[in-house]
Design a binder for these strands. Structure first.
Lengths: 289, 289
DNA sequence: CGCCGTCGTTCGGCTGTACCGAACGGCGTT
DNA sequence: AACGCCGTTCGGTACAGCCGAACGACGGCG
């Protein structure tokens, strides 16, 4: 039988994306490192108080002694921290350091910060910036608007392309062929009753996105949540990511949608400008690879 | 631009805190995981464009094939990303995700955010929040003031206790005995010509910190940089961290120092309040363990 | 009070795997 | 063409990672 005995059951019910990168690292991979990374992921998805050693051992399906060695090694590098009493493991300061540096390594993050702040002030909504990772939107920066509610989607995580404003803004820059391929890969999972779950409806929606210059997520990812997003382009003209704002649906009268959409698109254009890329222009019917 | 580690065999001496966690993780440790973590650290300290596989292999002293397996495993989890062309490894989106979650797991981060923003607006300086990690200050949150210069000390990193305002604010809450022990461990390394490098001067300085309620870093960590810091306390009355503001020395007339110090101390007290801890009170001569 | 469950930790030994070295094809430069 | 360096593949072997058992401590429960 394959090394990991069949205990991938129990928990991880709430991890929606989960193509489970567990051992599927191709052929040349290091088992203990993969285990260690799974440990880190589990700790990250766990409660803030941390997890006990036994919890971890059960979660990754190894013996306590093995798990202890892994956790100790990670803790030695500050990746995990053991908070006393009754040693519980949570993410350590090295994780913060790496995350901060990683954001700095992406050129977009630092540059877009002031623009996001401005957009958040203007719209009174949480504004975020996503990069395009193989067609998936990944938010790397977030600025909360004044008095805006706290959303808990962490940065650095792949979001569903079809169920987010940033995702649809990105999809709208791709060809129908590319969209179909990506959708076949992901599956258009239903998130709420408003989620677009068939490709044809999605393509029609994207046509609208191209005409407006911004994408709308009307409770398609989470109930009661409304988002607006616009794509940004890099120096090579390819889509680099998207800017989006998020708020409570009830706080947004319909007549403000277009105004806010223009604001988002304008902010995205300014980011494109900084990158040396082209500003948005309606590519209706002429979208090329 | 981060300090380049001009590495090779005699490398990684630039981590100041560093009891060199390389392999010295005690007795129960996993070698490949330690190697993997060193890989991540090296990539983090490297340039934003990433490092080639051969670079990494040389840096950690393993064969290319081994390094490839390690890097592939890390990349499968998104910890590293290989940016084409001519595969170069940089930090991946998972690092961002983990960092974001780690900051969320620390109670202080989210709670102090609005206060830091307020302080940054008030002082026009970069304001940061540090937690106390074994006596070392570790910044976990940063809010740039309007028009403030960009400082590149990454979050999540241990700073020198004796050469930073946050560090001295924390030291000031400790007993002379504890301060001496910590100093013996770290060594009061000189950073600039203003750095306090002997323990007695430091203790005298800390006495002043206690009287003022805030600590001053007058170009002691970096030339031309001026900081003010004040300690914060948790629900158990123990020191939990510090708030500090950072700016260019030339921009700060002497007569504003006390005013800004009070502002920092006030902000720190409000954080303590949120934590359910005691606000600052002058413990002159009455601090005991 | 003694029983049982769980916790974290230690240690010895076997097996598997992580490591290395050699070899290959592709590039760019000499 | 020949050289260097790059990233990648593959097979063999020693070693290190993994397990299971055992221990002391803690905490409920009958």
């Amino acid at each position: 039988m394959p090394p990991h005995a069949g205990n991938r059951d129990a928990d991880n019910t709430d991890v929606e994306s989960a193509p489970a990168p567990e051992d599927a690292a191709g052929r040349y991979t290091v088992r203990s490192v993969a285990r260690a990374m799974r440990l880190v992921q589990i700790v990250a998805d766990g409660p803030a108080e941390g997890l006990s050693l036994s919890d971890l051992a059960r979660a990754i399906g190894t013996s306590k002694s093995t798990t202890l060695a892994l956790a100790r090694t990670l803790a030695a590098f500050g990746m995990l921290r053991d908070s006393k009493p009754g040693p519980r493991y949570a993410l350590g300061t090295a994780a913060i350091r790496l995350g901060d540096i990683a954001r700095g390594q992406l050129p977009l993050g630092e540059l877009s910060r002031p623009l996001l702040t401005e957009l958040a002030d203007l719209t009174k909504m949480t504004s975020r910036l996503a990069i395009c990772d193989d067609g998936f939107p990944v938010f790397i920066e977030r600025v909360d608007g004044p008095g805006s509610v706290r959303f808990h989607t962490p940065l650095g995580q792949r979001e569903m392309p079809h169920a987010s404003a940033a995702g649809k803004a990105i999809l709208a820059t791709m060809t129908e062929q590319q969209v179909r391929e990506l959708c076949a890969l992901t599956g258009l999972r239903r998130r709420t009753s408003h989620t677009i779950t068939d490709v044809d409806s999605l393509l029609a929606n994207l046509k609208l996105v191209r005409r407006n210059g911004f994408a709308i997520d009307d409770e398609e990812d989470a109930e009661g949540i409304f988002c607006l997003g616009a794509a940004i382009f890099g120096h090579d003209g390819a889509v680099a990511g998207a800017v989006s704002v998020t708020g409570i649906k009830g706080d947004l009268p319909a007549w403000r949608i277009n105004e806010l959409g223009q604001a988002v698109r304008h902010a995205a254009d300014r980011v494109s400008e900084i990158l040396g890329g082209p500003r948005y222009s309606d590519p209706s019917g002429s979208d090329s690879a």
